[in-house]
Write a protein that binds this DNA or RNA. Sequence first.
RNA 1: GGGCGGUUAGCUCAGCUGGGAGAGCGUCUGCCUUACAAGCAGAAGGUCGUCGGUUCGAGCCCGGCACCGCCCACCA
Length: 852
Amino acid sequence: MDAERRKTLEETTRWDPGMVEQRVFRGWLEGGYFHPPAEGTPAQNYSISIPPPNVTGALHMGHALNGSIQDTLIRLSRMRGRNTLWVLGTDHAGIATQAVVEKELASQGTSREELGREAFTERVWEWKEQYGSTIVEQYKRLGASCDYERERFTLDEGYVKAVYKVFVDLYEKGYIYRDNYMVNWDPGLRSAISDLELENREVTDSLYEIAYPLEGGGELVVATVRPETMLADTAVAVNPDDERYRDVVGKNAILPITERPIPVIADEHVDPEFGTGALKITPGHDPNDFEIGRANDLQEISVIGEDGRMIEPAPERFVGMPAAEAQKAVVSELREQGRLRGEEPYTHSVPFSHRSGERIEPLISLQWFCRMDELAKPAIDVVRRGAVRITPDGALRQYLHGMENIPPWCISRQLWWGHRLPVWYRGNDQDIETYVGESPPDGEGWEQDPDVLDTWFSSALWPFATLGWPDTTTPEFKAFFPTDVLVTARDIISLWVARMIMTSLEFTEQVPFTHVYVHSIIQAPDGRRMSKSLGTGIDPLDEMDEHGADALRFGLLAMTSTQDVRFSQARVQQGRDLANKMWNASRLILLNARDDVEPGPRSNRVEDRWIASRLQRAVRAVTESIEAYDFSHAALDLYDFFWSELCDWYLEIVKPRLYDGDEDASATLLWALEQVLALAHPLMPFVTEEIYSYLPQQSAAALVVHAYPLADDALIDEDAEREIGEAIALTRALRRWRDLAGVPVKQVLTARADDARPHELVSRLARVEFSEDGGEPIASVGGVELLETEGVDPDAVRARIEERREMLRAEVKRGEGKLSNEGFVAKAPADVVDAERVKLDAYRAELEELGG
RNA sequence: GGGCGGUUAGCUCAGCUGGGAGAGCGUCUGCCUUACAAGCAGAAGGUCGUCGGUUCGAGCCCGGCACCGCCCACCA
């Protein structure tokens, strides 16, 4: 080690991630470690496709956890020597991105309509070039070892090809079709949006009761929160079992205001308990009514347009009014006509657009759909067969539940940013020709459909389109598809995971990945959802600024579980503390170990064999946990080993030998350090890589490509573990006794051992001097008799002994009770009973020793 | 309404096929012991939501109840 590096080690008493992380990351990139050659077979290789973040996105806590997990798996695989690829890319995120750019335009006093389609998309591309790399840079801060040289985008040239091929093929196979359907219409965006892009909010509306006269006398009273939609009513429905209305089913009601006759029908969806038990049916403006309408062949009338204003065939005086205004007008006319029978406040949940914030207007419109049921069948099958394994179980159940009753998917969006539908029309509404293909057919007058595809349509192709598909001969596709594992959160299982499996089976005839690991969603510390709008978000970048990327990674991994968890800053701090501990323990070792010894577990000394043995167990535990996607235990087991066993015990035990230049101590320490750095690297890559660069001898160019440790059973040493285990237990007992007896820290106790075992280690660690003195003992701790010593408070000693006797008496009583229970002795396994006897004997003996 | 999960220390969470309840943080006591005060050595703190059942034995298995959360479908 040169003088300057040594000086750095000597002077840097705290791990300072800010200084180091960037430099370490640059070293990895320059080493080309993240950019594997496209060689070998998918079975030999290991690959993961990152869930592509939105180009507009900023790294949030979900990304940070998701990335930490994947990077742990990727680094483990890479260190095991497998050719490992982590595919990185971003999603064009149609609605989100368009909204961002539109907002920018608005602030400049213009709009997308003013620019026109072509100029607008040009603007979005410019925006993407400028800001689209933000989130990619943030993944780098996290330490994500993605292949940054193979970055993909869902709108790049090759990807668009994949999307068009899938659309055209699915159309030709009859899955994709055009139909009138009820969609969630966002009047702000002027687009249909998916169920997942809306949020339900509690809203207090008025619930109106309106009397519909019946032909031939009488009336039916219906309840509604949206009286304006009655202008599009095409029926009134009652429950078929509802005695009150038995006679009116089949008659006609006269719709007030429009005076249109509409049938009274029976439908079991109607809840007789609610309101009056009679439901107005508006197939054009209510999803539920739409279903009932289709089931009963009702006419579908629309009186609200795409801008949220009334349109014909609503009576002319309403046309052009916003729906809310029309509601007032309709109510006031009903009141004048004496048709209004009630009005009361009514709180219910109402869908709002996540994007524009506007209240969703359910509308019927002509959209493109993809039928999913047949595609779902093989996708259910591969999961049932275990060809794709989904863990944990809850996520598996959610997947199957979602797939078994999968509705058609509305894939067209009235946006400008995205994959424009490869659909061409010619002619007029009465006589329209439709052609589906990448480019327009020969002939004049073909015009492309203005809509774009739902963003998830392209995301559904992610694992294979990023590797070159539809060209299945690219080196990347041949080497890395299918991928190994998909890491994601529960909220997009049906939206994304399921669709990837379906498209992959349909188009590549392979599963896209063999495992799906579904991790926790990180909630705010108070249990609410982390969200910017609620102000509950915690920015992972702030956490990294403050504590370092390793700390955040450790914290998130330690937090994650099979269920959702609350963000715990304490876990991040624990990670920071561990990184600091690693740095300082390494300083101790590196500044004092001899650099002329070959590192290795060569020592015969019991404490050296002990740490070698404990290290093997830690390696096994951590490795097994990662392989089982149990990242929390992996992180915490690593922490325990490093902190408690390596630092608290082994370093304290070995320190004097280290200072004395003992060769075995240096060999053991340097070896153990290298092993534990490698073990920890997938979880905490920065601090481990940095420390590794200080090792006097390095077997790899960098830790990132160092061999991952393999637990060596030959180093498991039960005898050493027992012996040191006993020394530790005795040390702790003596320390506890000292503390309770009020012995000053520096006071050395005099003691006599009844056998030779109490180690010289115990003597030093517990500050006890063993002597052959024959004096009367004042206390006995774990077989060690403590002799009269200056500074010992006799009262405290007596109290301590009495306390111990109390405990022993209770234990003896408990043990005797248990062993005199015939059922226990007869039915419990023999080893359990034996263990109970051994314990009882030991307690009795000790109690005897203390005078009963 | 349907489905799923949860309820364990003051807080956030572990707890393997049922055999004496653990971690981190926080609290208390004592230490600036030459790697680390982001540290060291100790300690206190839990009738494991509730009622009942199975069992020699239940945090764990079964049933009822209460409360919390998530997903799906949504009632006008």
